[in-house]
Structure formats: structure tokens, C-alpha cells
Simulated scan of single mutants.
Amino acid sequence: MIRAIYSINGTATTVYKALKIWEDYKKKKPNLIWIDIYLENHELGQEETLLLSESFKFHEMSIEDCLFPQYPKIEEFGNYVFAAVHGIQLKPHYFQEFEDSIYELDIFVGKGFVVTVHAEELFFLETLFEKAKARPQVEMKSLENLLYNIFNKVVSSYEFTLEKIDNKMESLEDDILKGSETVNMEEILNTKKVIFAMRKIAESQQTPYIYFTRANNNLISKEHLVYFRDIYTQCARMNQSITIRSQMAVSLLEVYMSSVTLRLTEAMKFLTLIATILMPVLIISGYYGMNVKFPEYFNFRRKRIMGFCGMFNVAQHNSYAHIF
């Protein structure tokens, strides 16, 4: 699916056909056009491929990078810059399947155009597109403004996810300190897995953003460099926050193991107390039940049997004497 928006004299125009997009771009020559391409089934249609390769003359390697997952990177070509950045769009049960919440956004940036390519439906792009339609004089006034809004939403998605992780970790800490039995190691390990997955993509995330902070950049004017330095600062702060959260997750696991050990120690104390109380009974029963010598026991049983037989014989003799 493809769509585009451009503004001329404060009036926004939206186009949904690849051929019409290129015709309007060459004929009307707007100061800025934003083309958004959603890859259904991770494939480019024929019209989209022609638009990128034949009309805009994008390099085939850049187009191929849109079809397969990439690490965060930026590549500079003759008339455009290609950047691949990653963000987080949380889905249900994201703690169990967090990797499905990570998306890749590929961006082609050149003089007068921004082309975004993504394989998932991104809600923040929908919001930006609707804002551009409603207020083109604000949202589409310059390439720097549009690009800053896109980057800002991508970086902010990490901060929102960190807030969710903080709430989860605080809840786990409270349950552990209360001695709640509902806490299990799987929840802590899932939280730790989410943090390390964020750290894996966030550490290399600064590379694309630092390009737009350079003073010799041909795409970003000097008065707008401060906005992209703000993006870079947010990204650096985000990396530091993720590192701190990873250390907190390790500490949380240690606290959980300590609480389990403490509960086990309390159980052992109780069992030791019970064993101490029953020890005299066990000693007495063991001594008189198992430690009696066999001959003495045999003689004792023999005497009782013989005594019983004697009593039987006397009783039988008396009964016969009474008859006769």
C-alpha cells in the first residue's frame, strides 16, 4: 500500500497511486512530499518498485534493505540518504514475546522528499499523516520538521516501554518483599529478557541519528541542527537508562533468590524443631524395639508359650475330673 501527501500554498493533497505520485511531484514540484509505503507480506508491488528504482533512482541495495531486517544504520548516496531505525510498538503479552513488538522503519531522505517504508502498520505514522492533512502549513512546512517528528516518535517509544518496565519491576519488588508466593522466576526472567532485547537494538541506534547533527550536512540547515542534537541526546539518555534497568533486573533476581533461600531456611528451622521434640520418643522406641538381643527375646516368648500351655493342661484335667 502506498500513499503520499504534499502541500502547495497551505493546501494538502493526498495521492494513493504510485504513478500519480510521480506525475504530481514532477509537474507541481512541491517543496516537500512525504511518501509512505506499507509492505504487505514484506513485498514491494510493481508500481512501488518502479517508483523507487526508476523514478527516484534509489540504489538497488537500498531497496533490497527494505525487504529484509537490518541493524540500525545510515548510508549516504549521491542524491539521498538511506537510514534504518528501530522502534517499539507494544503488543499484548509483550513481556513473553517482546521481539514481535520491535519494528524497523526505513527512510529515504533527499532534497524535497521523505520516503518511509515499513513492514508493519505503525500507529504513530497514521497520526502524523492525519495531522499533515489537517495542518499542512505546520506539519509539512519543512523537511527538517517532518523528519524531526518521525525520529522523535521512534525514540519516545523506548521511553514509554521503559515506563512499563519500571512499573513491572516495582510490582515484582513489592511482591518479593511481602513474601508473596505469586512471584515466580519466569516473570523476572521475562522482564530481564525485554531489557536486554532493548539494549541490543538501542546501543547501535545512535549511528543514524548522529549523521543529522553534523554541521556539513547538506539536508539539514544549521538552524535546525539543534533539534536533531536533541534527538541524539534523547537516544544517549535512553541507552544509559536501559543499562541501569539491566543492572536493576540482575539485582531483582538476586533479591528473589535471597527471599527463596530465606523461606527455605525458615522451613528448615521448623522441621528441625519438630525433629528435636520427637527425638526422645524416637530414641526410646528405637532402643526397646530394635536393640533387644535375640536370645533373650526368644526365651521370653518361649516362657510365655509354655506357661500358657501349662494353664491349658490344668484346666483340661479339672474338667475331666468333674465328669467322672
Rank of each mutant, 00 (worst) to 15 (best):
A12F: 13
A12P: 03
T13W: 05
T13V: 11
T13K: 05
T14V: 11
V15S: 12
A18G: 02
W34L: 01
D36G: 09
E40A: 08
N41L: 09
N41W: 04
E43L: 10
E48M: 06
E48W: 01
E48I: 00
F56N: 15
H59Y: 00
E60D: 02
E64M: 05
F68L: 00
P69Y: 14
Q70Y: 05
P72F: 05
P72K: 06
N79H: 07
H86Y: 06
G87T: 02
Q89I: 10
E97I: 01
Y103F: 10
L105C: 10
D106C: 01
I107L: 07
V109L: 00
K111W: 13
G112S: 13
V117C: 09
A119M: 05
E120Q: 07
E121A: 11
L122Y: 14
F123S: 15
F123I: 07
F123D: 08
F124C: 04
T127K: 15
F129R: 02
F129K: 04
E130D: 04
E130W: 00
K133I: 07
Q137D: 08
V138S: 14
M140I: 07
K141I: 14
S142P: 11
L143T: 06
I150V: 15
N152D: 15
K153C: 10
S156E: 07
Y158I: 07
L162G: 04
E170W: 05
I176Y: 00
S180P: 03
N184R: 15
E187R: 03
E187L: 09
S204R: 05
Q205R: 12
P208G: 10
I210G: 09
Y211D: 05
F212Q: 11
F212Y: 14
T213R: 11
R214S: 03
L219D: 01
Y227G: 03
R229Y: 13
R229E: 08
T233S: 06
N239E: 00
Q240D: 07
Q240T: 08
I242F: 05
S246C: 09
S246K: 08
M248E: 12
L252C: 13
L253W: 07
L253P: 13
V255L: 03
M257A: 12
T272N: 14
L273Y: 02
T276F: 03
T276Y: 02
I277F: 12
V281G: 12
S285P: 01
S285M: 06
N291T: 08
V292Y: 14
K293V: 15
E296L: 14
F298P: 03
F308I: 08
M311K: 01
F312D: 08
V314S: 14
N318D: 07
S319N: 12
Y320G: 00
I323K: 15
